[in-house]
């Protein structure tokens, strides 16, 4: 019970602050509606409008790009990490593109994939894949050397060591990379929904609400996007706890 008390108090405090700001007329009521209005507008959009569908579309896109990123990033990262010299030679490229804002690559991806659905998925998958690859490679590179030697002396072949030791050693780091990757995929998908010809998705809904001065709905949609990101992060933390019970022990 105690674990919930603090965050709930924080959330109530935040809403109170918002209400006080409205009372003090810190901003134009058109731009800063009271929390109650934001809530009713958002509730109406969820139950009668398209907000639920928008949320679902964003979840779908995020999951699809995340899946592609994982399928590419994990095996490639593990393979590169197993050959540290090879990883060192591609490290600069990985780091460079990892540091490049994905939004700066929208035009390039639009040229490559056209102004539609596949571009959103491709950019998000690209960004997430680099993060996942980088973490997987480092997980393997930092594998405890003693464990590798132990497997070798027990007669494990190269591929066996890879499957029985390196992948497991890297698993905690791989999951950290996947958690970072899914968060990044969500960020990129939402931005892509704003700027790459969309008719649905949370990004599209936010920018639409803003242009139509539906401030209550805009705040509500931002909140839904935030809740989504928070939930994804939490989900992956739970998965990490459950599946890599040995991490850090």
């Amino acid at each position: 019970m105690k674990t919930f008390a603090a965050p709930v108090a924080g959330a109530i405090g935040f809403i109170l602050l918002w209400q006080v700001a409205v009372w003090l007329r810190v901003a134009d009521p058109i731009l800063l509606p009271p929390p109650s209005e934001a809530f009713t507008d958002t509730w109406a959009a969820l139950t009668r409008g398209t907000l639920a569908l928008d949320t679902w579309r964003t979840v779908q896109r995020t999951m699809l790009s995340f899946l592609i990123a994982t399928v590419i990033g994990v095996p490639l990262g593990v393979a590169l990490g197993a050959k540290e010299s090879v990883y060192r030679s591609v490290e600069f490229v990985v780091d460079f593109f990892r540091s490049t804002p994905a939004s700066a690559m929208f035009p390039l991806f639009i040229v490559l994939f056209g102004p539609g659905e596949s571009t959103k998925i491709a950019v998000a998958a690209f960004g997430a894949a680099l993060v996942i690859l980088f973490n997987a490679a480092y997980g393997v590179i930092n594998a405890r050397r003693t464990r590798v030697l132990a497997a070798r002396i027990m007669g494990a072949s190269g591929p066996r060591i890879m499957a029985d030791v390196l992948v497991w050693e890297a698993l905690p780091q791989i999951l950290v990379g996947m958690r970072a990757g899914v968060s990044l995929a969500l960020v990129i998908v939402v931005v892509a929904e704003m700027f790459i010809g969309s008719t649905d998705g949370l990004g599209h809904r936010v920018i639409n609400a803003q242009m139509l001065f539906e401030s209550g709905l805009m705040y509500g949609t931002i909140f839904v996007a935030g809740a989504l990101g928070y939930a994804l992060n939490l989900l992956f933390l739970l998965i990490e706890k459950r599946f890599v019970h040995w991490a850090g022990r």
Binding site: R144, T146, L149, V244
Partner: peptide, 12 residues
């Protein structure tokens, strides 16, 4: 048998 059993056993 390694000195550091913590790093020699497979914790998974």
């Amino acid at each position: 048998v390694f000195q550091n059993y913590r790093e020699a056993l497979f914790p998974w």
